[in-house]
Design a binder for these strands. Structure first.
Length: 432
RNA sequence: UCCGCGAUAGCUCAAUGGUGGAGCAUCCGGCUGUUAACCGGAGGGUUGUAGGUUCGAGUCCUACUCGCGGAGCCA
């Protein structure tokens, strides 16, 4: 007898098969009993009628509790009344692996704290299951996109000797006799070294920020993918970001239609994500804010509400480029047309999901970069290796970073990014 | 760090300063097509902690603890 998974049911209609999984729910109306099984690929309702199966099988039903692990055997048939459209006519329960203790997460509503404390169990629910599948698909799209364009994956270190950007608060740890080490806040500087070696590279890994951010857009540990391309300028960088976002979103909504339906996501808003994406300058963004009556001073960075107001003007992500250089990192190249501006770009997702991409053309001139390091009061010794990239065959280059959780949150339409990573790390939570 | 909101049964929530309840979950019973099944019954409480006001506090006041989401910072 075939042991199959629930997502293969349609190929086995009319056959007697065996399924292994966990009890999702059960219902009974006396002589008819319904048992709903999940196996990680979906759910199936199975049904048995008293008299049609041995009494001993029929009675096993009563002892089963939610999330008990078991295998069931029976014939698959099409059944419009069953969720999913297929049903098993149950003939046997060959194995009950374990009768689960009283399961805390019932099919009713729960508060976020209760669920977060049980994240390891919460992942079994259909909504979380759907989000994890979307996350997986987004990550696959990220890899496929770069791999298909001749990029090489060059992983950056997670333990680093100093701050990359000198702004964020970092997690600090003792590092043997070498003093302190810090958890990386960005792999970018290392990706630049990679780009000078291999031309087109990306790094992809976890990133850490010890900022005490408490918002729906923040985690202390999150995943970021950072491409870096030699000989690219800011326009090339925006072209790449635009292709990249279109690829991720279009592939994900095509392959995860069922998951997005579970999440009740309005997919029409994602179908618009095709190039060209609108490109506006920081100056244009400021004009929009002023038109909307917001008191915004030129020279500041866009805050959360500012980003939302700007992004609401468009039906797809918007690229905002050429920010005041003072609010941007030291390594960003200044605009030769106006040295007060940095050749930077942020991509703002629609619907208030905020900045999902931040990028720039990098400063490739040794002397200018040395000046910036002084201006930002960064320790030059720590950046000597990075300055070497400007001493030995410096070229124009550009790159960006995309936050995986914000991207997944936007595509799924989640309230908070904490649902988009299996085990979120936040300021007041590092368990389970 | 600052601002705001909150904490009552296992869970989600009610309760005018005057006898702490409901739905779900659990247990018992019923039901031959259920869809977060339904119907009947039962058990389940130091109202976050410590003080205070009051004849009387879940309710008002103070402090603390924990949580939530917003600012700042950022992906």
């Amino acid at each position: 007898m075939a042991r199959i998974y629930i997502n293969q049911l349609e190929q086995h209609v009319g056959e007697e098969v065996q399924l292994h999984g966990w009890l999702y729910n059960k219902r009974s109306s006396g002589k008819v009993k319904f048992l709903i099984l999940r196996d990680g690929t979906g759910i199936i309702q199975s049904v048995m009628v008293k008299g049609a199966v041995p009494d001993q099988v029929f009675e096993k039903f009563d002892a089963l509790t939610q999330e008990s692990s078991l295998s069931i055997k029976g014939k698959i048939k099409k059944e419009p009344r069953a969720p999913g459209g297929y049903e098993m006519e149950l003939s046997d329960i060959p194995c009950v692996y374990q009768i689960a203790l009283e399961y805390p997460i019932t099919p009713k509503e729960h508060g976020i704290e209760f669920l977060a404390d049980r994240r390891h169990l919460w992942l079994r629910s259909s909504r979380q299951h759907a989000i994890m599948r979307v996350r997986h698909r987004v990550i696959k799209a990220i890899r496929d996109f770069f791999d298909g364009r001749g990029f090489t994956l060059v992983d950056s270190p997670i333990l680093t000797p100093a701050a990359c950007e000198g702004t964020s608060t970092l997690f600090e740890t003792d590092y043997f006799d070498l003093g302190k080490a810090y958890l990386t806040q960005s792999g970018q500087l290392y990706a630049e070294a990679g780009a000078m070696a291999l031309g087109k590279v990306y790094c992809f890994g976890p990133t850490f920020r010890a900022e005490k951010s408490k918002t729906r857009r923040h985690l202390t540990e999150f995943w970021m993918v950072e491409p870096e391309v030699a000989f690219n300028d800011l326009n090339d960088d925006m072209d790449l970001a635009e292709d990249f976002l279109e690829y991720i979103v279009q592939n994900t909504i095509r392959d995860c239609a069922a998951e997005l339906k579970v999440l009740e996501r309005d997919v029409t808003k994602l179908q618009n994500v095709k190039k060209p994406l609108p490109r506006i300058s920081y100056d244009d963004a400021v004009k929009i804010l002023h038109e909307k009556g917001l008191p915004f001073e030129w020279g500041n960075d866009l805050g959360g509400t500012d980003e939302t107001v700007v992004s609401e003007q468009f039906d797809r992500p918007v690229m905002v480029h050429r920010y005041p250089s003072e609010v941007k990192a030291f390594y960003m190249k200044r605009d030769p047309q106006n040295p007060k501006l940095a050749l930077a770009v942020d991509v703002l997702a629609p619907e208030g999901y905020g900045e999902i991409i931040g990028g720039s053309q990098r400063e490739d001139d040794l002397d200018v970069l040395l000046e910036r390091i002084k201006e930002h009061k960064l320790p030059q010794e720590a950046f000597e290796w990075y300055l070497d990239l400007r001493r030995f065959g410096s070229v124009p280059h550009a790159g960006f970073g995309l936050g995986v959780e914000r991207t997944v949150g936007w595509i799924c339409g989640t309230e908070h990014v904490r649902e988009t990573i299996p085990f979120p790390r936040m300021i007041y939570r590092n368990t389970p």
